[in-house]
Design a protein around this nucleic acid. Structure first.
Length: 419
RNA sequence: GUGGCUGUAGCUCAGUUGGUUAGAGCGUCUGGUUGUGGCCCAGAAGGUCGCCGGUUCGAGCCCGGUCAGUCACCCCA
């Protein structure tokens, strides 16, 4: 039993759920390509430093969530915990001309060694986009609007767009200091995590969920007001762009996203149908430098959790109904009929007739085979028995109307073509 | 990694104060006279009660451990 179960946090995916996944991928390609994005597929494992370097060594993802192993040559490799790093590596490898933009989307499995919960898996799937090479705030607005468009196309209503800015790196020092000056006096009242954050990551204290910390964080200085002119102008233009595109959003001045590489815009989309992990998607503007490359790449991107998108759809009653497995079912009565049914099935498929064709090789009674045909939802049944074999004919039964006729094999095509 | 809840047939679940061969519904299979599905009827198959150990004359029921699921925390998609 247990040996056949998938590992914790992983799962087998059967129809009809698979149909929802196919549809999700189709919609992603459909929408993102309208914005000029092209699909990129990168390996699901990379050299470990690709991730450590990009995500930041102090992040939780790097510290305790990566699936890292050594290959035979002793190199440290890691199953990708997110998509951006690999995409950036691929772009750097291909090369980006000065002034050239890369706009790509991707989807696929990601791996994080976390404890599974609602909407959280160890192997999960993300659909994401990256627009690299533009430093324009209008690009941020368009990117967020594209995500909102995508959600609408999936029928996901009721989500919220939360928006904030982290400003430019040169503003960070002053802001961190101001936050530190504010939180330090309260240190005794803070939770364990936040006491540690005082020295590691003061920003993160702003969105601590601990009630006591949250209370204190409410009185913290507004980071936006501490930023320089350039940062504030950038943010204002992102907001203006969203308004221009008719995207509704909420300012979330205390939202701080986990990864170190963000500059300026950060955003998150939440949905009430998800449970405790209510983030449907998240992203922001980033600057990334790669090992062996002197350049810094700036871009804007997001990743959406595919499981969560599906959960949100489910909470709105939008999952695919179970589908029939068979359109045409071929019943063979008696051992001599079985190879004839086999051949007939092959001919139908080659001719593109009868949709999903399944032949029954079980040599069971007619009744038993008819029951199977019915259970599988077949709309047409072809019956081959002794009498039919001797005269090269076949009984053609319409399962919806229960009408049937005996036809020479040569006339089957016409029968299939009529409704 | 930490905590709460759960773990009985393919599925959904019953199993009384621990006491003889562990039950139901659905599903599956077979049959209801010569070769015809869905409805109905009859019969059958299917379970080491997650696993290991303990308490007991005796445990699906009690205790401990373990594994798995689930939800929550940390964090994130």
């Amino acid at each position: 039993m247990a040996v056949n179960e998938p590992l914790p946090g992983t799962s087998d995916l059967w129809e009809p759920e698979v149909l929802d996944w196919i549809n999700l991928e189709k919609q992603a390609r459909n929408i993102f390509s309208r914005y000029g994005y092209t699909e990129l597929r990168t390996p699901i494992f990379e050299r470990t430093d690709v991730f450590v370097r990009n995500l930041g060594n102090e992040t939780d993802v790097v510290q305790k969530e990566m699936y890292t192993f050594q290959d035979r040559g002793g190199r440290s490799l890691t199953l990708r915990p997110e998509g951006t790093a690999g995409v950036m590596r691929a772009i750097a490898n291909k090369g980006l001309e000065q002034g050239e933009e890369a706009r790509v989307f991707y989807f696929g499995p990601m791996f994080r060694g976390e404890r599974p919960a609602a909407g959280r898996r160890r192997q999960f799937h993300q659909v994401g986009v990256e627009a690299v090479g533009s430093d324009s705030p209008w690009m941020d607005a368009e990117c967020i609007a594209m995500l909102v468009h995508f959600l609408a196309e999936l029928g996901i209503h009721g989500s919220r767009v939360l928006l904030n800015t982290r400003g430019l790196p040169e503003d960070r020092q002053a802001i961190s200091q101001a936050l530190l000056d504010y939180f330090q006096p309260h240190s005794n009242a803070l939770c364990e995590d936040c006491q540690r954050r005082l020295s590691t990551n003061v920003w993160r204290m702003l969105d601590c969920k601990n009630p006591a910390c949250h209370e204190i964080a409410l009185g913290a200085p507004q980071i936006l007001s501490l930023m320089g002119e350039a940062s504030r102008t950038f943010f204002a233009e992102v907001c203006a762009g969203l308004t221009e595109l008719g995207v509704e959003y909420e300012l979330a001045p205390r939202m701080v996203r986990g990864l170190d590489y963000y500059v300026h815009t950060v955003f998150e989309i939440t949905h009430p149908g998800l449970g405790a992990q209510d983030a449907l998607a998240g992203g922001g503007r980033y600057r990334i430098s790669l090992p062996g490359d002197k350049r810094t790449f700036e871009g804007i991107g997001f990743a959406a959790g595919m499981e969560r998108l599906l959960l949100a759809r489910e909470s709105l009653g939008l999952q695919s109904p179970p589908s029939n497995r068979t359109d045409t079912y071929i019943v063979s009565l008696g051992a001599p009929a079985i190879p004839v049914g086999l051949r007939l099935a092959g001919e139908l498929r080659q001719a593109g007739l009868g949709g999903r064709v399944k032949a029954d090789f079980s040599n069971r009674s007619l009744k038993a085979q008819m029951r199977s045909a019915n259970r599988e939802g077949a709309s047409r049944v072809l019956i081959l028995g002794e009498a039919e074999l001797s005269q090269s004919s076949v009984i053609c039964r319409n399962m919806t109307t229960s009408e049937q006729v005996t036809l020479p094999v040569g006339e089957l095509k016409n029968w299939f073509l009529q409704a």
